[in-house]
Design a protein around this nucleic acid. Structure first.
Lengths: 268, 268
DNA sequence: CTGATCCATTCCGTCCTACGGAACGGCAGG
DNA sequence: CCTGCCGTTCCGTAGGACGGAATGGATCAG
């Protein structure tokens, strides 16, 4: 068993990263910690410079110094590095948060998200969150564009899964129809069968010049902001597609001009 | 006064970010904490998943989860996002760590560094570190390419400083000569008058299409790895220059294709 | 093989400090 | 004015963090 105060502080810090601004009441509800304890922890983090108490906004937020807690960690695949700038740019222009997800066995894991840059995020920061391949927009955008042996391999793995979100894998015909539809559209959206219902995600694959599907790029919006899913897709799918293609270009340029031997896409 | 255990844990976590691998003895020396206390703190962080005890390497290192402690913080200028991929690519190819620094009043601040990706870094992670404009490679690469009013303004500020590292600002003729040399070379290096002596940094400016100097891109190497500074510069200056120019291109493409209203380069 | 040295880790009794219920002051709405 | 909700402060208590000393390896010298 570890030091309780530290465990608590780390949890609080994680929670703080999930929203641009956090009130004591919210943190109290999410962490189940007594308010005085929260105040004490936040004061400690504030003194240390990791947290700011924004009285105007009425809450606490992480400050620039938190980067020093993770500046020593990298080994992110190059596609994430190449894609960040585009993800940030889209969010600056269109406000909605975007994210980049990388394959991880029978799912994808979000490796970068612009939630903190988005003034209107339906979600909290979702970095390191795992998404299923068949029901989630970013999972499906990856899965549907897989080809040949790789596609079969993953399909087999999914078939063996008893996760309800992978249920579609037991209905090959329907699955094939879904894949065809996604490929025809050039983008995927989150299944209407899974939570949360008040938002949706539009996602496209990032495909290397070699044809290999590297990752997916997604944008999440409040459903209430549009009259229909079609409207949102018509607006953002082209943006995402051109960004995904630009990311693939950038990767190509990166490897050509600097000539990288091999970008190992090993996850984690 | 805050909670001591938390303050200590945060310090330990920061220290862990400064080196790829950290032994208890090193941490003990750097943090002045008793070893049992360190072990307890590290065990706590390990249980929570932020730290790994790599028995093979004989020490502790930060793990992927630390990113969740800062994933909520962004507001980084687009030039850093655009430059990351290139910095990472250079380090993967040439091994030496690279960094991107942004202007901050009378200095520059390192906003991104590939130290964790470098197997041979002379330095520890240097994110958020401030560098002087006249003696440091990355500072000088920025300063020397400033033009017109902006250059005069900063020069005035420097002249009013009594920081020994800004001493050159009191000798306008020598300063002008240095600036001319840097401009002619197209890159800057760290002054041989300042520490540390066992490494050096080669840096180039990142200049937007508009002509505005946005940032500097630097590479740091052990002096002992080359027979002369010339040799290292001949090898890496062109690499850095082409990367800097590519970053400017990327920025241009980012803003053209997504058409961002205004990239506010405000630092922290 | 023995003894010395250095290291990370565990023990455990002491003391302190983190804890949280209760109280407080501020604010908004009724 | 009162009521409800908020963030913050108080303060007596008790449980947990603390660190010196002991332990268990690993490495090296003789």
């Amino acid at each position: 068993m570890g030091i309780r105060a530290i465990e608590r502080a780390m949890n609080v810090l994680q929670e703080l990263n999930l929203q641009p601004i956090n009130t004591i009441a919210q943190l109290h509800a999410r962490t189940k910690l007594p308010k005085p304890t929260l105040v004490r922890i936040l004061k400690t983090l504030e003194d240390a410079g990791y947290v700011e108490n924004d009285v105007r906004e009425g809450g606490y937020r992480v400050s620039a110094l938190v980067t020093s807690l993770s500046s020593g960690f990298h080994k992110g695949p190059l596609v994430v590095e190449a894609g960040r700038a585009w993800a940030v740019a889209i969010t600056r222009k269109h406000k909605w948060p975007t994210a980049i997800a990388l394959p991880d066995y029978d799912g994808v894991i979000i490796r970068f998200s612009t939630v903190p840059d988005s003034p209107v995020s339906p979600f909290h920061s979702t970095v390191n969150r795992r998404l299923n391949l068949l029901t989630r927009g970013m999972g499906l955008a990856y899965f549907a564009f897989l080809e040949g042996e790789e596609a079969e391999l993953i399909t087999d793995v999914l078939r063996r899964s008893d996760d309800p979100e992978n249920a579609l894998s037991h209905h090959p015909a329907e699955l094939a129809r879904l894949v065809r539809k996604v490929r025809a559209n050039g983008y995927a959206t989150r299944s209407s069968l899974v939570e949360p219902r008040n938002s949706n995600t539009i996602a496209v694959p990032i495909i290397a010049k070699s044809g290999k599907v590297l990752a997916s790029l997604g944008l999440t919006y409040f459903t209430s902001a549009f009259s229909s899913e079609q409207e949102a897709c018509a607006r953002y799918a082209p943006v995402l597609q051109s960004a995904a293609s630009a990311i693939a270009d950038d990767l190509e340029r990166l490897s050509r001009s600097i000539s990288i031997e091999d970008d190992n896409p090993a996850a984690v």
